[in-house]
């Protein structure tokens, strides 16, 4: 605040402040590295693996890497919406399994692959909605609710499938998994579309602002008339929807619906979100960050495999990188 006379000069100062700081100042600022941790990490990995094993940089390998990353990218986006509200969705991978099994069962029953896909996505979205409803209406911590649905949904998947994998021999899914348009396979395009839609939703809609407000200061948001419970339920439903899309990509990729949870998908989705600079305390999020975080984790596994490092070392490497990223995040302003 100032006297009106000072106003003109202050406006000029404002214009100067809004321009970008110099590159040198940026590189010296630790919060720059924290904000771009996933990009810096990805570039670093690409350089290291590119030198250690030139095959890593071949077009074929990069395409395979992107294809392998697509599922994790979609899941990380779902997780991002939940984490932005200061929550966490532990049931994500279980929802993927349930979606896959429903897809398999409906397809096997002869109702057609399209209905199967729609029902699978509807089921996982319903799991997300249930999470959100229990957390807001039941006033139960997100951690407990999603831990509960993780177990419940896993059980439901086992009951429905009888514990047996279901083969899905659909040409539609086969084409989804193996076809490509331009330089990328269809799953990569699905992931790119998900990133675009989510980015617009987060940064260019009222919902996105209300989501960040809810995650940042729930009480303040509520006192301004934002319906924070609805926003939270929407975030969990989006997470469930993303799990459904991931289930389609997963079944397409392996050709069957497996009644087992891929726990590394869950953990890596949280890891990608952390690497992407999203605050676990809510209120601060991006979509590109977690997407690149997911790419980075996939690149890490891919590179270690190419270097013939035993698969047993991969979780260790992922863990080290996530903790390192969390340490760097402390410098985030």
């Amino acid at each position: 605040m100032s006297a009106p006379a000072e106003n003109a000069s202050s406006r000029e100062a404002g214009a100067a402040e809004e321009s970008r700081p110099s590159l040198a100042a940026l590189l010296l600022d630790p919060s720059f590295w924290a904000d771009w941790a996933s990009v810096v990490g990805l570039v670093g990995l690409v350089i290291v693996f590119g030198i250690a094993q030139p095959v890593f940089l071949s077009v074929a390998n990069l395409q395979a890497l992107l294809l392998a990353a697509a599922i994790l990218v979609v899941l990380s986006i779902g997780q991002t919406f939940v984490v932005a509200t200061a929550g966490i969705d532990l049931s994500l991978a279980a929802a993927v399994m349930l979606g896959a099994i429903i897809l398999g069962l409906v397809d096997a029953a002869g109702y057609g692959i399209f209905l199967a896909c729609v029902l699978a996505v509807a089921a996982t979205s319903a799991v997300g909605f249930l999470n959100g409803a229990l957390i807001t209406a039941g006033r139960i911590p997100d951690f407990v609710v999603t831990l509960g649905t993780l177990s419940g949904v896993t059980g439901l998947g086992l009951i429905l499938s009888g514990g047996e994998p279901i083969m899905v021999g659909s040409t539609f899914l086969l084409r989804l998994a193996s076809g490509s348009f331009g330089p990328f396979g269809y799953p990569v395009w699905v992931a790119i579309s998900a990133v675009l839609v989510a980015h617009i939703a987060l940064y260019h809609t009222r919902f996105g602002v209300h989501l960040l407000a809810t995650g940042g200061q729930t009480e303040s948001a509520r006192s301004l008339g934002i319906r924070t419970n609805r926003v939270k339920i929407a975030a969990y439903t989006i997470s469930g929807f993303c799990a459904g899309i991931a289930a389609l990509l997963l079944v397409a990729r392996i050709g069957s619906a497996e009644p087992q949870i891929n726990t590394s998908l869950l953990l890596n989705s949280v890891a990608a979100v952390v690497l992407g600079g999203v605050s676990l305390f809510g209120g601060r999020a991006s979509i590109l960050g977690p997407a690149i975080g997911a790419l980075m984790l996939t690149a890490l596994v891919n590179g270690l495999t190419l270097l013939s490092v035993s698969a047993f070392y991969q979780p260790l490497a992922v863990g080290a990188i996530v903790v390192l990223a969390a340490l760097i995040m402390r410098y985030q302003k």
């Binding site: 009222r206 602002v209 209300h210 960040l212 407000a213 940042g216 200061q217 009480e219 303040s220 948001a221 006192s223 301004l224 008339g225 934002i226 605050s279 209120g283 601060r284």
Partner: peptide, 24 residues
């Protein structure tokens, strides 16, 4: 004007001024 001000720390000044009254 609430005693706690009802501001969202992680949002910008403009976003706070238009919170729940956003121009679309």
């Amino acid at each position: 004007v609430h005693q706690n001000l009802a501001l969202i720390d992680e949002l910008t000044v403009a976003q706070n001024l238009f919170l729940n009254r956003e121009i679309v």
